[in-house]
Design a binder for these strands. Structure first.
Lengths: 179, 179
DNA sequence: AATGAAACGTTAAGATC
DNA sequence: GATCTTAACGTTTCATT
């Protein structure tokens, strides 16, 4: 799939392999725009222009370029979980089985697919070290956590065991990356 | 500070103590609005109205209500770290000192303040369990990670030791909470 | 190639029913 | 909650450097 894309694109002038785009060069103005939009995704182009020292149409063109390059992936509304009744956050380290009963489906693929279907899992990363995966899970309370662990996570054939840490306090939590 | 707010608000009809607002009741339409805005923070009120089966002005009023209740905390642009050259994500478990040389400043307060000033730390939570804090850190590469650990984190007087896991692959990462 | 200024179409916001 | 009106905003065009 990737190799065919590579072949196809070597035959042309420009080349864009998914996930391997060249790192877009960002000047000082681009960075100011990104910082502002990461703080307020609905800031007007006039306000952006004033901050960047450009006209709004010039800013608009830069924003479009950043969007098309994937530097700006999306615009979203942020909802604090505790405001919608999700008062308990857990980080769960998960270790997978080495193999499952069905040799055709390995634990990793099974787990990857399952994680996508579990709405309480908002973050999942494969990690170096002893435990295979780290999950961030949002639940209403301890009872819902117990149900997620007992009925969902540990019941899954790909999962060997897990270790949980609960969030006592959130000191910092930003979607803004430093640019 | 909180007690004076409590006194002031007990004298009135309605009462809003910071961080202790009653969980706003959300009906099916509110949830649809929240789901849509968490997917696309710039969706028009006409489009929202069509999805929710309401007029755009009715949707606008609901959104304002959700904003004022803090259910919608903010609107932001999302920038994938790898698109701005931050190719390495680390989860760092940090254990704090029991006390510092200066008995007036405890490690916890020192660490809290320091974390806010470190731009590469995008997430920091106090956890149950052995290790006191979990950080998510975005850096360019292993060299920058080494510098952060050696020159910043472990140099800080509040920090006793830490354990790092690096992200191999990100299976799921959403800012949208399940509503 | 990137910018700035102005014109145009769309959207948000407020008043009224 | 819906309709209508006005002001603000986003978007395109074109001249300019």
């Amino acid at each position: 799939m990737h190799s065919s894309a590579l072949v196809a694109c070597l035959a042309q002038e420009t080349c864009t392999i998914p996930g391997m785009e060249a790192a877009l060069e960002l000047d000082a103005i681009d960075r100011r725009i990104l910082r502002a939009l990461q703080q307020d995704g609905r800031v007007t182009y006039d306000a952006l222009a004033a901050e960047a020292g450009l006209s709004s149409s010039a800013v608009l063109r830069r924003v479009r370029r950043l969007e098309e390059a994937g530097v700006i992936a999306s615009y979203v509304a942020l909802v604090p979980p505790e405001r919608v009744g999700l008062g308990l956050t857990a980080y769960i380290n998960v270790r997978l089985e080495k193999q499952t009963d069905n040799p055709l489906r390995n634990p990793r693929d099974l787990f990857r697919a399952a994680v996508q279907t579990w709405p309480e899992v908002v973050e999942c990363a494969a990690l170096t070290g002893e435990m295979d995966y780290l999950l961030r899970v949002l639940v209403q309370d301890m009872q819902h956590y117990a149900r997620f662990i007992g009925d969902t996570l540990l019941m899954h054939p790909s999962v060997q065991d897990c270790k949980t840490s609960f969030v006592l306090e959130r000191l910092k939590n930003t979607t803004a990356v430093p640019v």
